[in-house]
Amino acid sequence: MDIENVASLARLQLSEDEKIKFKEQMGSILNYFEDLKDVNTEGVEALVTPTDINKDYRKDGSVSWDKASDALEIAPLKKGNLFQVPPVV
């Protein structure tokens, strides 16, 4: 596994130590996953969520959230009511 590439895809800064350890561990973990290759899954539908409930969908209608200002309070950095981040362009 190309650890650096995957970590960048996941936006994760890894320490040098983590990179070395992960590289080795991922190898053996992926090796451990190899067992799955033995299973014949031809034509088997993937199971994503283990429930077959089928309920009605949410009826359209809006509700104003009374905790909206509390939710903005916990932002690490704001300007007015907007979230502030480094320049994105």
Partner: peptide, 23 residues
């Protein structure tokens, strides 16, 4: 729609900054 695709906060245009929000 009156509310968003996956939550019940409003879709109204031209509201205050971060006014139409929910968890």
């Amino acid at each position: 729609t009156e509310s968003k695709m996956f939550s019940n906060d409003s879709t109204a245009f031209g509201q205050g900054d971060n006014a139409n929000i929910s968890p």
